[in-house]
Simulated assay, not measured.
Amino acid sequence: MNTILITGAAGFLGSHLCDRFIKEGFHVIGMDNYITGDQRNIEHLIENTNFSFIEHDVTKHISIDQKIHYILHFASPASPIDYLKIPIQTLKVGSLGTHNLLGLAKAKKARLLIASTSEVYGDPLVHPQTEDYYGNVNTIGPRGVYDEAKRFQESITMAYHRFHGIETRIVRIFNTYGPRMRLNDGRVIPAFMGQALRGEDLTIFGDGSQTRSFCYVDDQVEGIYKLLFSDYAYPVNIGNPHEISIRDFAEEIIKLTNTTQKVIYKDLPVDDPMQRQPDISLARKLLNWEPKVTREEGMKKTFEFFKNLPEEDLFKREHRDFSKHIKT
């Protein structure tokens, strides 16, 4: 049985990856320090003999005695509400954390896949975004802590690949959604759904003309799985190319949730990208992959998940205690 280490295992995407690799017959070692993860996302796996868990911060030295064949590095704050509160920790998990995992991959002779992001493209001047576009990122803006952490992560990964011969893979993840997202994490889908379920008006930042392309989690996991077992070391976009404006998307949410709220507008955050759409030509050619789940189907599943959350989850605001991490 092959063993895979998945960092960020208690997060939204990390927990779905744990499920997938257990289903495929792997022994999964999950690692998370619960800064932004949720123990409930993996509680169904705790009694599974093919799953073990280590509570650990990947920016600290990682020591695992057993053989590891594969590593998925998905530990990182991914929501602006998080990385703006813990900017230094966000930079450290992309730099020190990635360095530690590359060292572990080298020692274990394991293949490492890192989770990069469409945010490396910044506010793009090329549309849709292709893997050979270098991006338009404000290095000193508030979002730079996340964008540059991921850009550095790609650079150090390629350096280890070229210099040490480590088997590496890089996935550039575009907006992904589905069950287990945090309802109040500040990203557009949980924000809209939380407001709809609470009977609040839906908040759009800017004039709503900015676009996003939403990929359902099952499709994203399938793309990551195929990329891990490919022979390609360079970045690959994994996302859904069906683009929609935020204004139109808000109307879809109102229709889906059968509510009567109106839409209100607030100022656009600094450096918020105006367009986001992946060119997935490479993924189609290299992996024979493209998304299968329609937005209508995926949003229904996601809404059912949010609708069935405990009432205290619906009405609580995010007040996570980051105090022990802010000064580190």
Rank of each mutant, 00 (worst) to 15 (best):
I166S: 04
L112C: 00
T168E: 02
I140G: 01
V126C: 06
F174S: 06
G103N: 14
F174M: 05
V120T: 09
M181R: 01
V188L: 15
N138D: 15
D185C: 13
Y133N: 07
S118D: 02
V93M: 10
S155V: 13
I140R: 04
N175T: 11
E154S: 02
D147V: 03
G144M: 14
T176P: 10
P190F: 07
N136K: 05
L101M: 09
P142V: 12
I189Y: 07
G94W: 08
Q153E: 15
E200C: 04
L104F: 11
V171T: 11
V171E: 08
R162Y: 13
V126F: 13
R169D: 11
A159G: 07
G135S: 03
L96P: 02
Y146A: 05
R151K: 12
Q195T: 10
G94F: 09
Q153W: 05
S116K: 03
R172N: 05
E154P: 00
A105D: 00
V137P: 00
F174T: 08
S155A: 09
G165Q: 09
D147H: 04
R162M: 13
R172I: 12
Y133V: 08
H99W: 15
G194W: 08
I173M: 13
A196G: 05
R143Y: 14
V93P: 03
Y146W: 09
V188K: 05
L113W: 03
T139C: 07
K106C: 09
E154Y: 02
N175S: 09
S118H: 02
P142D: 01
H164V: 15
F163M: 06
V188D: 10
L113Q: 14
S95A: 13
G194S: 08
N175R: 11
E200G: 06
T130W: 01
H164L: 15
E148D: 01
L112K: 05
G103V: 04
G165K: 13
G206Q: 07
L112R: 05
N138S: 08
Y160Q: 03
